[in-house]
Design a protein around this nucleic acid. Sequence first.
DNA 1: TTCTAAAGTGACCAGGAAGTCACCTGTTGA
DNA 2: TCAACAGGTGACTTCCTGGTCACTTTAGAA
Lengths: 203, 203
Amino acid sequence: MLDAALAVFAENGYAGASVDEIAERAEFGKGTIYNYFPGGKDELFLTLFEERVVGWLHEVVARSFPDDADLSTPPAARAAFRGFIGALLRQFSESREALLMFMKEGYRTRLDVEHEAAFSQHFLSVIEAVARPIEVAVAAGALRPLPARTVAHVLMGNVRGYLMAEVDAECDPSGTFEPAPFGSSSEAAEFLTTVLFDGLLAP
Amino acid sequence: MLDAALAVFAENGYAGASVDEIAERAEFGKGTIYNYFPGGKDELFLTLFEERVVGWLHEVVARSFPDDADLSTPPAARAAFRGFIGALLRQFSESREALLMFMKEGYRTRLDVEHEAAFSQHFLSVIEAVARPIEVAVAAGALRPLPARTVAHVLMGNVRGYLMAEVDAECDPSGTFEPAPFGSSSEAAEFLTTVLFDGLLAP
DNA sequence: TTCTAAAGTGACCAGGAAGTCACCTGTTGA
DNA sequence: TCAACAGGTGACTTCCTGGTCACTTTAGAA
């Protein structure tokens, strides 16, 4: 049922998705949806976002930055964040639908007044989680002394930008989009890490 | 009329905005809206996006990278892009509503099937415009040899991430968001330029 | 086999929003 | 003063979709 909902939300966005279509795709009656999710469309969406996007993000952060992670020197910090970015990209390439939902609705729901309370919390919890290792690395002198949470926002924006480039290239069958994005998530992670951590300027 | 529409779209997003509300806020009858925009809500939105977001972005790019811009050395390139980022941030801080619309609907419309054709073109034209100076700087050896369009996507994602941080801080009246983002768009531009061009790693 | 409770259903209702159109209203020129 | 017209209007129609609920089906115990 959640799978069907995810597919529909990813395809049409929150506003464009109809409960009828979700029910049909899930091969359930509409009433059944309301048995499981009394809150209706809203609850369905929130649950999905929590489980399939925010939950995964937290898992990736936790896995990439265990308590004993070494963030004390620039090379160590770079390696840790490279691992994180790679895991993020891999996660999303494994679940294209969650990615699309994240891209389409992520910022909007965060900014929407009616959803704000619930989504803000989720959104900020991810930012907070990403900011923590940044803070540690900054404190250790491995990273420049910049505001951690703002850096976390920028880092996530970066990843989104890259994902957008990938989606773009995919949507463009003519291949006029040159150059193509990277073949593997490992190469892509190296690219993003280079941009973010080493900087764009030629050494 | 466009101003009213912008306000409503920025507040409620595309799906949440009603033509009635736009008409009311514009102090016009609903029929009048349809006199000027026979295509209705869709045309209104498209026009707005074209004029108030894409148009401005192009202007900023054109102003920041005149034909005789010096992008031949790392410091020169850095200065040029810093100017660009600063102009971008200033533009958006001057027009909060356009910013909100850009944030809420930018990715979604780009990915939406029905709007895809029209919006893709606009979106990609901006990316293309940003990619051009990047390509020049790469060719001159001022920047690392990375795929220009992908870098352009990432750069825009970066700016969005920073803007998101700003919006976040603003929405959080308790001030628990620490540290606050930068006071002026000039400081913010220096921050973003440092992240993107010099890299996060401590020198 | 029968009874009961849980699970599932889809026709129906109510509300809201996009778009239409017959009708005003104010202005200009004779 | 009046005719003609451009510009403006909002009640109305139509469609859509979220949510409800009386009813059917299924499963499992007695």
